[in-house]
Structure formats: structure tokens, C-alpha cells
């Protein structure tokens, strides 16, 4: 199996050597060829710096980066077969959409007619036929996003980097673009490396994902693995707001003396009689498809997801809690 991108103990530190800011700190990761790989994490977790290390705008302080087996330490951004869809799109404001898309071909010296044809092809790919003569300022946010995508794809990169590409779009458009990006990636077979802070986006789009925290990778795996078996408290909390249970609470829930996580949807509310666990309802939160009910159990607050259509217990009432023991996930990591 060949890897599109390979990080070996990569660090990127900023600032003075005696008190560095460790934006990326000892990261190992591999992105398989043709994968849709997501880098997920809160802002400042190092995911964007990792992306810039791949594109070449940052150089590692330590460690090595390989792209398709080739060490890229000494290769500047303009000579890497990698292209980026920037967060703010970074379209050239003085050029038409067509010239924006054809830019990568123009600097390579491709003949004008040939590159105009190729640009049109790319615009068709992102469903923007006929927009070639417009200026970026005449386009909506979603259309600019597509131009940025077409522009990055025109050079036929082997890896496409996307830096929070959907962040500026409204919810409806974002969901539509998520589906389109996924379909496009499947069609082109290019490796996508996608940076996002939106866990829903990462879970629904990626084949595999890396969760970043404080410049380190907290967990790497398929979305299902990361969601069902978070390795640390941070991952459990960040990827889908799980109930994170301290060792003594885990014991009360019938587990070992370790930190564990329990997904809100795994908890069922029952009548308070004859069950091992019970607590007091402290709050409801309506989510549309269901409601999140907070229950205080021996001083620890846990959330249960009640699907729409089920009755909600009143605040202050006592309820029983039931769950499949297999759903209680004991975490290996502490952090």
C-alpha cells in the first residue's frame, strides 16, 4: 500500500527556541492514496499548520514529510504536485473566473486556447459553465468556493488540500457541497486532505480522520472507530459531545475503575423502580430530531438523547437509566 502523505515525527515550533509555541508537536500520520482524509480539531490545535506543512508554506522544525514516497523538505510550494483550496478562497480579484481557473496552466506555459478549454472543462466539473467571464466579486460565496475548487484541480494534483473550505457557507449550502465534494473525490480518485473544526463534517465525509489537540494527534482512525471508541477524554468530548465518566462514575455504571465514555444515544430513560441506576432530570434541550435530557446521577451530570415522539420526563422528576453494557467504552488514554 502506498501512502500519499507520510509524516514522521514532524514538529513545527514557532518563536524562541527556549520557549517555543509548539503548533505541531511530534506528529506521525499516513494518508493512504485515494483517501478522503480529515484533520479535525479545535482552532489552534495544529491541523491547519499540518496542512501548510504538506503544501510547503511551512517547513518542519523536526521530522520528515514524504509525498508519494518523496521527501519534500527542500521542495518549495510551487514545485509540489499538491494544490490547495484556501479557507477564504484567495481568488485573484483582478482576473476573470476563467483566468483564475487557468492560472496554474498559464504559469506552466500552456497555450492560451488549450488552457481556456481546460478551464471550461473544470468549470463544468464544478457546475459553473458560462461563468468564465465574470469577476470573483460578481459571484456568491458558494460560487467562489467552486471556482477555488476548479482552480486547484486544473493542475491535476495528486493530493488536494482543503482548508476549512465550507466554513463560510450557510448550513444548507454546506451540506450540498459536502455531498458534492465527496462525489467529486470518488470520481477523480485524488487524495483529499480536509481540515475542519466541524466534527459532523469530518465524520460524514472522511474515510479516515485524525483528531488534533494541542499540536498532537489525539486519535487517528475511521470515523466509526473514533466515534465509538474514543481513545481519550478529549476525543470523546470533541467528537460528538459524549458523556465522559470519571473512574468512580464508571464503576457506578458497572464498569472498571477507569475513565470511560458513553454516547447520549446509548442511554435510555426508564421508570425509576427496579433499576440499578437512577437520577434527577435537570434540563431539556430541544434538538429537532430529538431532545437531549440532562440527568444528575450521584452528582454527575449525564446526557441522554430521547428521539422525537417519545415523552419527555419533567424537570426535577426521578428517572431510571438503562444501557447496553457494551456501549460503555473504557478509554486507554487519560488526556
Amino acid at each position: 500500500m502506498s501512502f500519499a502523505v507520510e509524516f514522521q515525527a514532524v514538529s513545527r515550533h514557532f518563536g524562541p527556541a527556549n520557549a517555543p509555541v509548539k503548533a505541531v508537536d511530534g506528529v506521525d500520520l499516513t494518508v493512504p492514496e485515494g483517501a478522503f482524509f480529515a484533520m479535525l480539531g479545535p482552532s489552534g490545535s495544529g491541523k491547519t499548520t499540518c496542512l501548510r506543512l504538506i503544501s510547503g508554506f511551512e517547513k518542519p522544525t523536526a521530522g520528515s514529510i514524504r509525498i508519494f514516497g518523496q521527501d519534500v523538505s527542500d521542495i518549495p510550494p510551487n514545485r509540489r504536485n499538491v494544490n490547495t483550496v484556501f479557507q477564504d478562497y484567495a481568488l485573484f480579484p483582478h482576473m476573470t473566473v476563467r483566468d483564475n481557473v487557468a492560472y496554474g496552466l498559464m504559469v506552466k506555459g500552456v497555450d492560451r486556447r488549450l488552457r481556456a478549454g481546460k478551464a471550461e472543462e473544470m468549470l463544468a466539473l464544478v457546475k459553473l459553465e458560462g461563468y468564465g467571464d465574470r469577476k470573483p466579486s460578481q459571484l456568491s460565496g458558494g460560487q467562489r468556493q467552486r471556482v477555488a475548487l476548479a482552480r486547484a484541480l486544473v493542475n491535476e494534483p495528486r493530493v488536494l488540500l482543503l482548508d476549512e473550505p465550507l466554513g463560510a457557507l450557510d448550513l444548507k449550502l454546506r451540506e450540498a457541497m459536502q455531498d458534492e465534494l465527496k462525489a467529486l473525490q470518488a470520481r477523480l480518485g485524488i487524495t483529499f486532505v480536509f481540515v475542519t473544526h466541524d466534527q459532523g463534517e469530518a465524520l460524514s465525509m472522511a474515510d479516515s480522520l485524525a483528531v488534533f489537540n494541542n499540536g498532537k494527534i489525539a486519535q487517528i482512525g475511521t470515523p466509526a472507530e473514533v466515534y465509538a471508541k474514543p481513545r481519550t477524554r478529549f476525543v470523546a468530548d470533541f467528537v460528538g459531545s459524549s458523556n465522559v465518566l470519571a473512574p468512580e462514575v464508571t464503576r457506578a455504571f458497572g464498569g472498571p475503575d477507569r475513565w470511560s465514555s458513553l454516547r447520549p444515544e446509548a442511554l435510555r430513560l426508564t421508570a425509576p423502580d427496579g433499576v440499578a441506576l437512577s437520577g434527577t432530570v435537570t434540563a431539556h434541550r430541544y434538538l429537532g430530531a430529538g431532545s437531549r435530557v440532562s440527568v444528575a446521577v450521584n452528582g454527575t451530570e449525564v446526557s441522554a438523547l430521547v428521539p422525537a415522539g417519545h415523552g419527555l420526563p419533567a424537570t426535577g422528576s426521578t428517572v431510571g437509566l438503562a444501557f447496553d453494557p457494551a456501549a460503555l467504552h473504557v478509554m486507554e488514554g487519560e488526556g
Binding site: D88, A90, Y103
Partner: peptide, 20 residues
């Protein structure tokens, strides 16, 4: 932004200066 975009698309410094 756009200067990095230019380099990302394969332009050298001179091309970035001239075209962007």
C-alpha cells in the same frame, strides 16, 4: 492569501510578482 495561492498553483516569485 492570493500570493500564496499563486505559489500553490505553481508560479515562481517572478510570475507571482508579474501576474498577481
Amino acid at each position: 492569501g492570493i500570493l500564496e495561492a499563486s505559489a500553490d498553483l505553481g508560479a515562481n516569485s517572478f510570475q507571482t510578482f508579474r501576474h498577481v
